[in-house]
Write a protein that binds this DNA or RNA. Structure first.
Lengths: 225, 225
DNA sequence: AGGACGGTTCGATTAGGATCGAACTATGAA
DNA sequence: TTCATAGTTCGATCCTAATCGAACCGTCCT
């Protein structure tokens, strides 16, 4: 009579409207703060906190503290797949769908975060370094691989100086517009510095926007493809 | 805040233990009467009736009256896929309500998922079809290759009939025990049917277990090696 | 230091829905 | 016809869990 894993337990987690709204807000893979998720769900912060604790206990989301903020993201892309599948079932019996659009395109594309690159291009940089196994690690703990170190030196980064500094060489930082990890730490700063030196990009005065030249953009794509 | 289809509505249907038990009982693709489902769920006939009405309204099950019996079955194999995927999440979160009984290993080895083969052997089948380039595709979008079509016909599958049906011929379904894809769709069903016909395997009464004979297992390994 | 703000915990309230008893309908068998 | 069985509908009860107010704990800022 009772066989197999307890699907009711996990399904009932998804079955509450507030939690479902939070999860759908997280479906793009980005991380959001507790407060933002509360707003998405249309509940108070207290209620949201309770929901988030349950989702975390159920293994559906992963939490990460940064400063006084708590960021939450889907635990895993499998969770996203299940949500997609559930939407498929929901569509056949009910409601339609809508999709919002982005804002502040330039800021979202590339900007400085303290002293390193953030925005879509920052996230892309991070993703490609990871995909090419130039950096590796889990969560925030990241390090350059052997090939990565060679690559960085070749790119003109003085790794020796970075390692002498007290600042960590590699660190994952959460992006506020894309809400995914990008590369911070000494290496992140050094790479952005090299982009300036190579005239691939420049700061736009009075803003945090990093403006890539056409050639710079192409060189960037080429170097990290 | 109001984006996408209402996944909470359908998820809350799956979130009730009684309904979840009914659905898991239906996962082998067979149709059961209201009374049988009530016993599976451990509730009285009245409550079962209420649950079944809700599941039907939600498009998860299909009802069919025959004499004084009401038969219920999963509305379609997508529902089965979602249930399998949910089981995957439940297992990962350690929410496995079931003590690993003696039947557990057999279930993991080979079982029916709606009407096709799942478990280790289902995944193995899928992998080998892919490795031999008999099927190809990305994600859930899969199709038979030319050599694959020839192979299927040779194996005794009536592809013409499959293509006339509205049901997709090939489809990937996520396996809860192995957490990888196995083959669903018309072809998946047809292959399992052939396994039965060839006496390679048979259903174990009252369970979802598919029991392969020794010779059947050898023939399976041989045919898809 | 102080204060502001984001997040969490605790407790009490409340609404939704799962459940069952009883009555009702329909089918099949005498 | 009468009876039995399968299923559904109705109403009442009861229990869980979502919710928010208020207080508490950190972190950041000046």
């Amino acid at each position: 009579m009772k066989s197999g894993p307890d699907i009711a337990a996990v399904a009932s987690l998804l079955g509450d409207p507030a939690r479902a709204n939070m999860l759908t807000a997280l479906m793009d893979g980005a991380a959001l703060t507790a407060g933002e998720l509360a707003r998405h769900a249309g509940v108070t912060a207290q209620t949201a906190s309770s929901h988030l604790a349950k989702l975390q206990a159920g293994g559906l989301i992963a939490a990460r503290k940064q400063g006084r903020h708590s960021y939450f993201a889907l635990a895993d892309e499998d969770v996203g797949s299940v949500l997609e599948a559930l939407m498929g079932l929901a569509v056949r019996a009910g409601l339609g769908r809508t999709r919002p659009g982005p804002k502040e395109p330039e800021l979202r594309l590339a900007r400085v975060c303290y002293d390193h690159l953030a925005g879509d291009m920052g996230v892309a940089l991070f993703d490609r370094l990871l995909a090419r196994k130039l950096i590796a690690g889990v969560g925030e703990e990241i390090a350059l691989t052997k090939t990565g170190s060679a690559f960085a030196e070749d790119f003109g980064v003085d790794l020796g100086a970075l390692e002498k500094a007290k600042r960590p060489v590699c660190k994952a930082c959460l992006d506020w517009s894309v809400r995914r990890s990008h590369l911070a730490g000494g290496l992140g700063a050094a790479l952005l510095q090299r982009f300036y030196e190579l005239k691939w990009a420049a700061r736009v005065e009075g803003t945090r926007i990093v403006s890539f030249t056409r050639k710079g953009r192409a060189a960037f794509e080429d170097a990290f493809a």
